[in-house]
């Protein structure tokens, strides 16, 4: 237990070190997830648009 406590305390600088690492991790993960979502969203939109285009051309033929 003491080992963990000591590790978290970081010689008294834990209050500065941990927020640095946690905020860095959070910002980078949020950026990654947001980018992945943007890509998936766009891919879904284009999938929805492309069949619609085909239907339109199909209607024109009949």
């Amino acid at each position: 237990m003491d080992v963990i406590k000591e590790f978290l305390d970081m010689g008294g600088y834990g209050g500065y070190i941990w927020p640095s690492y946690i905020v860095t991790a959070v910002v980078l993960i949020v950026m990654l997830v947001a980018s992945q979502r943007l890509l998936k969203g766009n891919e879904a939109t284009i999938k929805a648009l492309e069949p619609a285009k085909k239907e339109e051309t199909g209607e024109e033929k009949t």
């Binding site: 980018s35 766009n42 939109t45 284009i46």
Partner: peptide
């Protein structure tokens, strides 16, 4: 890479919408 892929798809969407 993820963002560039997203942008390329977004450009395609824009072109498709304009065509429609």
């Amino acid at each position: 890479l993820i963002r560039i892929r997203a942008e390329i798809v977004a450009n395609k969407i824009r072109i498709l919408r304009l065509k429609q």
